[in-house]
């Protein structure tokens, strides 16, 4: 007779413990705060879904979310095509390959707060090279005072910092294409656009899916660089979701609404990532 027991479950315990510690417990703390009111001294009062209703109805949250969506959409629209274009322009073999790769990897190696400080100084209108240069062209540019200039600088900084990631991923996809494909395309009389459309793009699709997802998640949660560069200003013009969250949680010490906002923020990120992934991998399932 076959003996059955459930002892194998004990072997899964360490993993459950680990996941509990690094994900579930912190998350549950946030959930805990999001449904209660606290006045310190460990006194908690049940408040139900009040914080969620408050956040979802607040104009401040809507404004931050809108700014966040515009920012993410803009940087994706710039970084993905630009990254692919740079990857296409990079040499496939030869002594320049390592040079290009190192140059591309450099921005990725710089700590995020350093990136923020670099651009903070670089773009200053009185002493920064970029700021002074733009003003020298006759354009009035001061990112500490003009919302448009602040947005321009934040986007430029993100493009500088993260396009490399897209380039490296796209390049990895490109070099995996055997020479025979290019030779066959030449013989079949394919124009460069057809080569891109029917050979290069399909072969890059998988890595580009990853690139879009990574760039979406990272830019949607962006905090350090704009926080150092503009501090969310001028006014609230570059206050993205995470900056706003920190202001509520640590600036105003409204832990309940901040916790509710964290959860909403988390669910939006999760939902959009899932939608992206499902759409981009749709034909493979066919």
């Amino acid at each position: 007779m076959k003996t059955e027991n459930q002892k194998a479950w004990f072997l899964v315990l360490p993993v459950i413990a680990l996941v509990a510690f690094n994900a579930l417990v912190p998350l549950m703390t946030v959930v805990n705060y999001s449904v209660q009111e606290t006045f310190g001294n460990n006194i908690f009062l049940w408040s139900g879904v009040r914080w969620f209703e408050e956040i979802l109805a607040s104009e401040r949250f809507h404004a931050a979310l809108t700014r966040q969506l515009i920012f993410t959409a803009t940087i994706l629209a710039i970084e993905i095509p630009l990254g692919v274009a740079i990857a296409l322009a990079m040499p496939r073999k030869g002594p320049w390959v390592p040079v290009c790769l190192v140059l591309m990897a450099l921005p990725l190696l710089i700590p995020w707060n350093v990136v923020g400080s670099m651009w903070n100084i670089f773009a200053l209108p009185d002493i920064g090279l970029l700021g002074k240069g733009i003003n020298a062209l006759g354009i009035d540019y001061n990112y500490t005072q003009q919302p448009v200039a602040a947005w321009f600088t934040v986007i430029l900084m993100d493009v500088w910092h993260w396009t490399s990631l897209v380039v490296l991923l796209a390049y990895a996809g490109l070099i995996s294409i055997p020479d025979a494909y290019y030779q066959a395309a030449r013989i079949d009389g394919a124009r460069p656009w057809a080569v891109f459309r029917h050979i290069q793009l399909p072969k890059m699709k998988k890595v580009l899916t990853i690139a879009v997802l990574l760039r979406f998640m990272d830019s949607f949660m962006i905090y350090t660089e704009p926080s150092v560069l503009t501090g969310g200003g001028p006014g609230n013009s570059t206050t993205f979701l995470s900056i706003d969250l920190v202001k509520i949680a640590l600036g105003q010490f409204d832990l309940g609404p901040a916790a509710a906002m964290s959860l909403i923020y988390f669910l939006i990120t999760l939902l959009v990532s899932w939608v992206f992934y499902t759409l981009m991998t749709k034909d493979e399932a066919e």
Partner: peptide, 19 residues
């Protein structure tokens, strides 16, 4: 160039346009 010679070539590994 190959496309001006009006020739065809079949390679060692099948080359197809996946999509």
């Amino acid at each position: 160039a190959p496309d001006q010679r009006n020739i065809a070539q079949v390679f060692q590994f099948p080359v197809i346009y996946d999509t």
